[in-house]
Design a protein around this nucleic acid. Structure first.
Lengths: 204, 204, 204, 204
DNA sequence: TATGAATGAGTGTTCATTCAT
DNA sequence: TATGAATGAACACTCATTCAT
């Protein structure tokens, strides 16, 4: 039967502990990423992913209860590297250094696999995934933490500001990625003035 | 699904002349918009659109040679209002007034039907539609024209700047739309500093 | 009908290795034959074939990338038996014996499943299948080989003669099949004089 | 509603007496012929025919109760010219002259619009049309009449012989048509020996 | 009478998911 | 546990036919 009416769960079916299982899961996630990059959302289907992973479709369903769970897991995999790097911003001495570092992390992440990043952003907007998804939360908290620094002027509404900053950075990096840009430093140097402008920090 | 064999053309199949036809076409476009808003990209299928429009599936295909053509027509319908409003920016006395006016147009457009606008943005990125689509071009030229004003300092790379500005505005408005914001003035007042920051115009 | 957008390939999609698969493929081919015989070209659709084969429509598409591929596979199945029998003509001692044997093979083939044979002939004329199809080629070469025999007078234009002979035999057997004839020997005895007349061999 | 279950009648809906009507009917028939030639059986649909005829689809259904009736009428139109010419064979002095004349008529008919002729032959085999169709009957009687001549030896089974001769001629002319042959005399000179061979007339 | 907009059953094809082996 | 054959709901699109204007 196809596309059953009952929403299949999103949590991984079995947390793989055996090394072989971990390998399989990793292979599936990377395959999912590659299929997305190669064929777009239209060509992103479970059979293609399983085939590219060199695994049977049955195995895919052994580790993921459904397509959405696979997508979600891929999102989390991508976010993980990201979060780690973004968190390094907190170690910066000054607030403006922290912001710059944060922006740099976002830019590097996006330009590494721009197509994948963009498509995952789109998927993240789907209601089913939205709830579960998200390093949006993590990034959000990092920004809020940076705003606390006392060497800088805090935005009036930190919550709103965090969301807006993320939106600016995501908007510009997505577009840059679509246009095939690869120069991290250049892109970062264009994002910073916008962000600092938003924050009302002269040219920091 | 038939995702059929010959790529169906994107141009409207028959320009409706009889009043009844025009009604049907209008009903189909509005239905397409509503289905997109209600069910998202996943639920956006030709049968649903026809049903919501209160016409038969056959009628849909009398006016649109395929699903993509319908999507494209909807994009154009949305862009039309938009372009007209955005073009008014050119009539503003000063460059910074023009930019503000432009941003205002974008914000109003986006907050009017935020979900629809966002999903159409996503669709616009699909290769098939990318070529045909787009007021991206129109907006782009408007910005370039504004940059010519001599009361303001021109950006070093106008082309890049235009793309970046659009990205900033789109990123922020999409996010605001997703969050259910409706206050045009407020959103506009948050976008402007970012844009002026990007352009290096102190606080214009 | 969707006669879909990308021309689907004609080659089998997956060569079945498991015994169950082979069964399914065989069932599908035989079902296709029976549907053609029962309902004609008009009733020959993939759903009917799958149903008659007792498998789901999805299974049909696992083995055949499209309707045309199924038709083609059926043609090849029918041609196979045929070619083997027709090739036996080459083993005959004299040229005229060879021709008779060849005609006999054609007649037997056609009268076995006359309706099916006729409809496949019609399908074979479709541009898409024409290229791929074809034991026409095989039969053609067999005739040319027979013409080489030195106990008989070669036709002036062997190529043309081969085509014409095939046309005579096909025309007569198709008609006989339509009329419900079943007497192989009788039909053969009517075809031979026409063929020998064409070749200018008195009564051979 | 599409493809109604009840078989629509095959007889022309109204025998047009007004000159304008006759023109419309003629235009429709010629359009049907051209569509068939251009697009084959696959592209042969009522909308296409009406459009090519420069007439609305509604008008088509005013003169023909259904698609099959249109096809049938086209068959009759083609047969008409044919019958007249074939009937001239009866005026020939000798039996063998008559046969030759008859073959000539068949060949000329077929090579004039070979694609059309072939496709109509295929359609003629459909059960619905078979009953109603045909000049097969007319040609049949002409041959039987020729067989009566006393300057020639009558075939043992005239009925069978008439069918067989028609089959030989149709088989060869169809094939020639498919191959793009246009030389009437040449084709005729290849058919005659086969026919005379069949009839057992040395080389007549 | 002519028009052409509208209809909707039918058909080809896909893909998420299940389950026997 | 892994496999991959099988399933069937869903979807894009066509075309014979009707009927309001």
């Amino acid at each position: 039967m196809a596309r059953s009416t009952k929403t299949p769960p999103l949590k991984p079916r079995k947390t793989p502990t055996q090394p072989r299982s971990e390998q399989t899961v990793a292979a599936l996630l990377e395959a999912a990423a590659q299929v997305l990059e190669r064929d777009g959302l239209e060509g992103f289907n479970t059979n293609a992913v399983a085939e590219r992973a060199g695994v049977s479709i049955g195995s895919l369903y052994q580790y993921f209860p459904g397509k959405d769970a696979l997508t979600l897991a891929l999102m989390r995999r991508e976010d993980q590297r990201f979060d780690a790097e973004a968190a390094m911003a907190l170690g910066q001495p000054s607030g403006s250094e922290a912001i710059k570092c944060f922006i740099g992390a976002c830019v590097r992440q996006q330009l590494q696999r721009p197509v994948l990043a963009r498509l995952l952003d789109v998927e993240q907007a789907r209601p089913v995934l939205r709830t579960e998804a998200g390093n949006a939360g993590t990034l959000h908290s990092i920004l809020l933490a940076i705003f606390q620094r006392d060497d800088i002027s805090q935005p009036a509404k930190p919550e709103v500001a965090a969301v807006d900053l993320l939106a600016i950075v995501r908007g510009m990096t997505d577009t840059a990625g679509e246009h095939g840009e690869t120069d991290v430093a250049d892109l970062q140097s264009r994002i910073e003035p916008a962000v600092f402008g938003y924050l009302g920090w002269g040219g920091a």
